[in-house]
Design a protein around this nucleic acid. Structure first.
Lengths: 336, 336
DNA sequence: GTGAAAGCGCTAACAA
DNA sequence: TTGTTAGCGCTTTCAC
């Protein structure tokens, strides 16, 4: 009903149809002030009937709150962003808050343009998302008149940030491998200049032993294959488990092992990181991997920005959210 | 400067600081009406200095245009949506139009909630995106007071829609295979109840011959492997080329061929569909595939909604945008 | 319990 | 060329 009406109804129309004043209509609709229950119900019924929908622009102008937030992201493909964004809007839509999506492509000019637009629109807050922890926002995000929440990025000191707990995720992976009795665990991961790679590697070494071998490379399948070729081609004892820094690397690893007739998980157990299902569900065997709980990250970030935008106190700091382990056949219970 | 000011400046502040009236300030800033060039420059300079940014809410309220549009999508993972959305906002951001992202997860309740929110916010238009052509929007999108553009979805009659030209894309693939001298081309694709699968298969048959074999299945790697096992395990002549309905299928096909020592592209050429780089760049050899030009789809959709929202005439109908062929080694020129 | 009036920040007639 | 005025749709005192 409300949708298929060509002309928009205003609170004026409601008031007239109900035979009350505008302010009474407003009070009745919002449950503010004192209103006779009968009047209130009558007004609401009429509003419903004529398809009245409040103009969010007018409301925002007056309340100085737009009930909208902006999401600034430099992730082009959306692999991290979209699941997260879905989490954000999931918790916000019920609160009447909408989300502007701004893809900056890591271009400062674009970022600036988007930021200005968001500010002009009086958004109640901004969520900034990066694709890697150590990437700085492409624009100055401090001293804005509105709160900012960082996701997958550590903001300046005293800011609110949410990141996955990479160390705990890595421990999850290593513990699973140890539980299966694996003793010669290898870690193949991405570039050492990624903070996430270093953190995961650090946690791995802490669990396995400080001398444990880490092969830094890049995030690709090809690197996974290459690393396996190197390790299994050289002299000395071979690993009986490989913890990979990403699902893509893990896929390369599994393929390479397959090529040299080493079976997974019987001979070598493999664990990945990301739970990017297009990869992790398609490996043969399917990949046990660490899930960063992106949606939950989004939920938390959404709740945080909501709270902050209401002026509530919210302790600053970097919050590390636990990862979970998705157990599939590449390293599972069934294999013992 | 403009960003780091805690308090918001209004046009009132500008007018006072410049010693002119509010309307003169408005005219000067927007270049409307007649203003003395000197006054205009002075006002603009002062506005800049004190960090004035116009309140989009107030402006929208008056102009009855919010300069914002909504994007309603049922794509959860964002594989199609995000590149497209980036295209949309790329053409709109320069026009001062922002984009609300609404992920419906195909849930009618959510869709309704989002749609109501968009309408309340007075968006100037809506872009509806689906993940498959034959999926109906989860809410009634006709007879809205604002224009709607469909992407990856055919709206009701007389609506404006943009979809990739699946038939042309399929022809591109088949022609490439024929150009290489392949004569026994097979098509392995997704479920027959996907319109895109049927269209691609139809175009393929038209090029190759009406009796040409099509194997419908699903969009997975596993199906690609299974199909290859079937085809190469049975009696009779074997294909020398395989056109796959998706990159994932193609990846399965390539892996399965590899398993039985059939080399790609020497023995069998393979072409995929999607150019989803996480898949197509990682196959061995890298995959020649059809790119649906998602970003361009977004550009067009953005321009269309912009034009429609201004009340300009825009011919209704389904516009099929050409796909392009990305040639990689699985079926390339070098192989001859 | 209800209504009149002011005003959010801005634009656009119209007057001066 | 500039200023005065009205008003977009709504919320919110404050009289009645």
């Amino acid at each position: 009903m409300s949708l298929i009406d060509a002309k928009r109804r205003t609170i004026h129309d409601v008031a007239k149809a109900a035979g009350v004043s505008i302010s009474t209509a407003s009070n009745a609709l919002n449950g503010t002030g004192r209103t006779n229950p009968e009047t209130r119900d009558r007004v609401r019924k009429i509003a419903e009937e004529i398809g009245f929908r409040p103009n969010a622009l007018a409301r925002g102008l007056l309340q100085k709150r737009s009930h909208a937030i902006g999401m600034l992201t430099n992730d082009t493909y959306g692999r991290l962003t979209l699941p997260m964004a879905a989490g954000v809007s999931e918790v916000l839509v019920d609160q009447g808050v909408s989300v502007f999506l701004c893809a900056t492509n890591n271009d400062p000019r674009l970022a600036r343009l988007h930021l200005d637009a968001l500010l002009d629109r009086q958004v109640d807050g901004i969520i900034f998302t990066a694709t890697r922890l150590d990437l700085k926002p492409p624009v100055e995000l401090t001293r804005l008149p509105i709160p900012v929440v960082y996701v997958f990025a550590e903001g300046p000191p005293e800011s609110v940030a949410f990141i996955p707990d990479d160390a705990q995720g890595a421990r999850l992976a290593v513990e699973q491998l140890m539980r299966l009795g694996r003793t010669r665990i290898l870690h193949i991961t991405g570039p050492e200049d990624y903070q996430a790679a270093r953190t995961r590697a650090g946690a791995y070494r802490k669990s396995v032993g400080e001398g444990a071998e880490v092969l830094f490379g890049n995030w690709s399948e090809e690197w996974g294959r290459e690393a396996v070729d190197t390790v299994f081609g050289r002299e000395g004892s071979k690993p009986d488990a490989i913890f990979c820094g990403s699902d893509e690397i893990a896929r390369g690893v599994i393929d390479a092992l397959r090529d040299v007739n080493i079976s997974v998980p019987e001979d070598v157990s493999v664990v990945g990181f990301d739970n990017w299902e297009v990869v992790s569900k398609q490996t043969r065997p399917p990949l046990t991997t660490v899930d960063m709980e992106l949606k939950e990250l989004g939920h938390q970030a959404g709740l945080a920005i909501l709270s902050l935008s209401k002026g509530e106190v919210f302790d600053p700091g970097v919050r590390k959210l636990p990862c979970s382990l998705i157990v599939r056949r590449s390293c599972g219970a069934e294999q013992t």
